[in-house]
């Protein structure tokens, strides 16, 4: 509301209304003050209860560990150096491998779905709704659905046993396969939606032009549709990669101890291992990986044509 003088049409007021007007008059012609006042309450909350705790954690990650896991005086970088240990490098490597594979699988499964929705004609809304619905459903419930299907007495094994296709249950739960299935199941909608958005924006006359100029369907897809949907592919990949990198619940419930990812290491250090500084350092290593992914994505976006989000 940028008018700098009160409107000539404004009726004189008294009491509460007059007080209100005097309050708003303070902001007239001061856009910066107005903006900061509006942003203020939310900003304070986020600084106090989001950024503050993260900084506190950063501080803890450089503290020395006392006998019972409580921090003592003095600073050190030993908690970060501990990641050179093959055990922790292994967890880090597994986390990266899982997050990357999950992103690739989601891309392979999600692209055709996004394509079918974009080409869906009058079924477009229904098809879109069916992808969005699981996104709104409880992550915990969806993870349990995976357990229900994959454990030894689960539906898949009992069905295969009764059909006589196998003699004993296939061990699926607590394997990398189970974790991967859970991650893909959880994050697939994040891949479909941005790809659909960029396919939706695609100008049909470009495809028409390609057809008129003699391009076969495969060439039309590879040289027109696919390149123009790359912003959606990049955004979807980021939206899948980031949460799978930091996932905790999926490996916790579907993976067991051997499939530990870095999120589980963090939780473990704060509960059973009681090594807060090391847990804090592990948290900042995940944060650093996330940052690298985001920065890489932004640089690619700013270099390429079109906007991504």
């Amino acid at each position: 509301m940028s008018s700098s003088s009160p409107s000539p049409f404004r009726a004189p007021a008294s009491g509460l209304v007059a007080l209100r007007r005097r309050f708003f008059a303070l902001f007239r012609g001061r856009p910066e003050t107005t903006a900061w006042t509006l942003v203020g309450p939310g900003l304070s909350w986020m600084l106090l209860f989001f950024i503050g705790p993260l900084l506190l954690m950063l501080f803890y990650s450089f503290k020395q560990r006392g006998v019972y896991g409580v921090v003592v005086d003095g600073y050190t970088i030993e908690h970060y150096l501990r990641f050179a240990d093959p055990l922790y490098l292994g967890i880090l490597w597994r986390t990266l491998k899982m997050a990357l594979s999950c992103t690739i699988i989601c891309l392979l499964l999600g692209y055709p779905v996004a394509y079918v929705i974009a080409a869906g004609g009058r079924f477009k809304n229904l098809l879109l709704f069916l992808v969005v619905l699981p996104f709104w459903t409880s992550f915990l419930v969806r993870t349990f659905a995976m357990i229900f299907l994959m454990r030894d007495t689960g539906l898949i094994n009992t069905t295969l046993l009764s059909l006589g296709l196998i003699d004993e249950p296939i061990a699926m739960l607590y394997t990398p396969f189970a974790v991967m299935a859970g991650l893909v199941y959880g994050f697939l909608p994040f891949m479909v939606l941005p790809i659909y958005t960029s396919l939706e924006k695609l100008d049909p006359s470009l495809l028409e032009a390609a057809e008129v100029l003699g391009a076969r369907p495969v060439a039309r897809f590879l040289r027109v549709t696919l390149p123009l949907s790359m912003p959606g592919v990049a955004a979807g990949s980021l939206l899948v990669f980031i949460p799978s990198l930091g996932s905790y619940l999926t490996p916790d419930l579907l993976g067991g101890a051997k499939q530990m990812m870095i999120g589980n290491l963090v939780q473990n250090q704060f509960t059973s291992a009681r090594n807060w500084p090391f847990g804090s350092a592990a948290s900042f290593i995940v944060m650093a990986l996330v940052l690298v992914a985001v920065v890489g994505f932004l640089r690619k976006r700013d270099a390429g044509p079109g906007s991504v989000l």
Binding site: F50, L54, Y60, Y248, V266, V290
Partner: peptide
């Protein structure tokens, strides 16, 4: 700066958010 700040909670892993608040 404020616009970037808004995206920090969107990309921070939940377990890190939870643990840092517990620390606080």
């Amino acid at each position: 700066a404020l616009e970037s700040l808004v995206y920090i909670p969107v990309v921070t892993p939940e377990i890190v958010v939870g643990i840092s608040l517990l620390l606080l």
